[in-house]
Design a protein around this nucleic acid. Sequence first.
RNA 1: GAUCCGUUAGCUCAGUUGGUUUAGAGCGCUUGCUUGACAGGCAAGAGGUCGGCGGUUCAAAUCCGCCACGGAUCACCA
Length: 896
Amino acid sequence: MELASKYNPAEVEGKWYEYWENNKLFHSKPDGREPFTIVIPPPNVTGVLHMGHMLNNTIQDILVRRARMMGKNALWVPGTDHASIATEAKVVARLAAQGIRKNELTRDEFMKHAWEWKEEHGGIILKQLRRLGCSCDWDRTAFTMDEIRSESVIKVFCDLYNKGLIYRGVRMVNWDPKAKTALSDEEVIYKEEHSKLYYLRYYIADQDEVTPTGIDGEVLHKDSIGWYAVVATTRPETIMGDTAMCINPNDSKNRWLSGHKVIVPLVGREIPVIEDDYVDIEFGTGCLKVTPAHDVNDYMLGEKYNLPSIDIFNDDGSISEAAGMYVGQDRFAVRKQIAIDLDNAGLLEKMEDYTNKVGYSERNSDTAIEPKLSMQWFLKMQHFADMALPPVMNDELKFYPPKYKNTYRNWLENIKDWCVSRQLWWGHRIPAYYLPGGGYVVAETIEKAVEKARARNHDATITAADLRQDEDVLDTWFSSWLWPISLFDGINNPDNEEIKYYYSTNDLVTGPDIIFFWVARMIMAGYEYRGDMPFRNVYFTGIVRDKLGRKMSKSLGNSPDPIGLIEKYGADGVRMGLMLSAPAGNDIPFDEAICEQGRNFNNKIWNAFRLTQSWTVSADAEQPESSRLAVEWFDALLAKSAAEIDDLMSKYRISEALMTVYKLFWDEFASWYLEIIKPVYGQPIDSRTYNSTLDLFEKLLLLLHPFMPFITEELWQNVRERKNGESIMNQSILEIAHPYDGKVIADFEACKALVTEVRSIRKQKNIPMRDALTVEAICTNPLKHLNSIMKKMAGLDNIEVVNAKSDGTAPFMVGTAEFAVRLGGLIDVDAELAKLDAELAHLEGFLKGVMAKLGNQNFVAHAPAAVVELERKKQSDAEQKIAAVKENMKRLGRNC
RNA sequence: GAUCCGUUAGCUCAGUUGGUUUAGAGCGCUUGCUUGACAGGCAAGAGGUCGGCGGUUCAAAUCCGCCACGGAUCACCA
């Protein structure tokens, strides 16, 4: 077979992915083996792959492929999320582009458009995951709004309602005026913003009764019109909703306002001055305007003091009729206008620059959230928090890295009820049905609702037509939190074989940004509905950033196209690039250049294979001693490395595990093993070495496969004859790690050190490899059994044991064993002495440190015997080396 | 503002209960190599007073305290 000198991923990736799928190699069904399960964090159904997905899914695939090769029944379940707000926003935008407004459509018409959109754009991301090599069981592909998942969601809602954990009520919620829906607290992100602080005059209503005692002499509260108070606010447009002014009862400078009424500027309404120590005396003027309908804290004050609440905003953020002024204008336009109007009316005392934080929708980052009173559905969370906290804190359910336990605890200990209703259409419609005469029932189906309604009203004539279903849908996360259960139909059929076999799943791989949205809530649902954790381990990936450390974003244009990268470097190359730069829990500064390293490694593997294919094999040729030794050594090293990889993977140190295989292949197998067994050009290789080499190469491919699935399959299929349907995917890696002789590896390391010394001397003296050299071993050669290898690799004709080194030799040491290279006339005395001087200085410095320790009576008395012993060994080794260096100096004519 | 995490070679990071020959890796860098696997390669090198100051200890990159810088999460004063 004629092989190109470079690996071409495009030629093989599609072929093998198809082969895996056709042979059902990703498919799993319950059997007698131990299961290993991962459920995918479902990407948005209409989303496209970004670097975060690439990282996250590469990790999952590595874990799944590895588990499969360890003899487990491995299952990775794929699926997509309906992403209520994001998808609905996209559909609305598309309709708008076609000149259709959402409110011109019926709910059914809109849903038809939405499903069309889903069919058109849905699933692209799943195709992209195939390009990456993900070994998902595609037969199980699920969608959070498919039949089983929808039924599960509705069932759970009804169940929680029946348990008294879900309630409906008017509360202050985070309102998104663009999407026109409520959001949960977690969906609001606060951004710092430069704004203004407006100081407004509120004149006293009952001027005659003002007795300004305790007024700070410098602050004047009276002008030609009369006495007034000043309020500082960032939101002057909300004054139409003011129903009180509040001061702190301990605030002496505002004491005089107590018990009076003030007039809301421009509006003219009289409002009371109330007192509460919530007010910060130091902030602004110490006077707070209270707008119960539009601020969470004001709402609390309103409740406490029974204040009326005037909702001055419409759902889209424009001013409502209730405001009585500026009706229909946008809230931000009004803020500008009202400042002008206040100023003209002499009611604006001053304006200051101010930095505050404004909440934005996590999904529509350009829309400021409006705190708004509205009727919503809530889930009581304390019950769930109580269940979900202990297993994480006591490490039954492990977080990697563990620092996120803190974040988790923090949230659960300050848990607030979850607003689960959304004023959208794309989602699971809340199964609450309103009765004609008021009140409602909650039921899984309309039929059951009718039954309940009849029972409730004692009226057997009620029909489905009389009931009106709640218009709202549920928060997307209300379906996602059931994912590890609903994927196996464990809500609808709690005793089915699949849920019992696959649940609890093993690992969840996700980003720390959704620890509250998703991870915590899945844990809650897991305990509520299965009495057990949904997964045993959570691996939190970092955020993929660009090489300057910035988040990847569309607006910065710094996010590479994943498919473009795969086309450029191959899926294996990109996977490796990502994994090499992704230590657990750290953010990943992604530089495309690192994919080159991945690609180069593929090429290295490819060329190693090419080398083995170029040999002719002879059954008669005898196995050289050096080859026998190399096989023995590399087999031991492979066993050692496999054990290391096991250990690293068990700690989710995937990056380090990959680096271990990388170095094993490149530095040990390619640079040493292959160079040792490589026959002289044109000569055949003995069949024994050849077969051993293929065995070792195969084992390397197995270890590499979870990281680089495509190239390893391609080469594994070609190393030896395979039957149709066979795949590297289901080979076992369990046998690679076995007991080995550590001395074999240690001796080989010493042998490599000798070779490197000789090569270094060759370079200094400019002696090419073709000129054979002779090495002297002084008194004894502890590496004698490896002579054949050292000769071949260092280009030596002989390694002689001598009693004393000859003149004209360059000495060196391997450990404490002395060697020298015969150089004849090539020796440069001055350079040699300079080298020895440097070495002596180093050794003496080292010895001094050791002696300082040993000379310290406290050290000798307190340190463990083994540590003291080690220091003594260091001392004797150093002394021995120093003696050797001095001896070498003497021979070069230096008196020491 | 509260809590947590980090600061080790030019870059990205290891360094697992304090002691393993006066700190390791990958990439990058330097120098030398064109005939037989691979220049996307081979070989040999250079490079760090472990953020700063103090403390505990026979012994500190490792433990404690303070400071500086960076990051995360939560909470916010209108």
